[in-house]
Design a binder for these strands. Structure first.
Length: 110
DNA sequence: CTGATGACAGTAC
DNA sequence: AGTACTGCCATCA
């Protein structure tokens, strides 16, 4: 592992801490990773993850509370996983971030 | 090193 | 409300 944790390592570490039934946004992960505004890189990191990764990458959604999968079909799968964890999606396929968004106890929430 | 890229976010219309 | 454009910033060629 690199001596200085890269942005990628930080994001992966944060995603690994997301408990079941909760989600985090890309911008939030970027902020907690120490690089506010780098939300796009968070997506790039998750994009490179293998499908059988141990990381709960499916619990990462965009600021709108919707899944931003880069591949059709994968979004349906991700949505099913989140619903199985107790999350509720609206008719538009969005979930209530106010109730579902999770913040590490280490960080102060707004 | 420079330019292009992108699982986003915020603002404008 | 939904769509379009811009800004941001870490990787990759």
């Amino acid at each position: 592992m690199p001596a200085s944790p890269s942005f990628r390592e930080q994001v992966l570490a944060l995603v690994a801490q997301i408990p079941s039934g909760r989600v985090m946004t890309y911008g939030q992960l970027a902020l907690l990773a120490g690089h506010p505004g780098a939300a796009r890189q968070v997506g790039s990191v998750l994009r490179g993850l293998p499908g059988d990764s141990d990381l709960p990458w499916q619990r990462v959604v965009n600021a709108q509370g919707r899944v931003s999968t880069y591949r059709v079909g994968l979004g349906e799968w991700q949505r099913s996983l989140l619903e199985a964890e107790g999350l509720s999606f609206s008719a538009a396929g969005q979930l209530d971030l106010v109730a579902a968004q999770w913040w590490p106890s280490d960080s102060a929430r707004p």
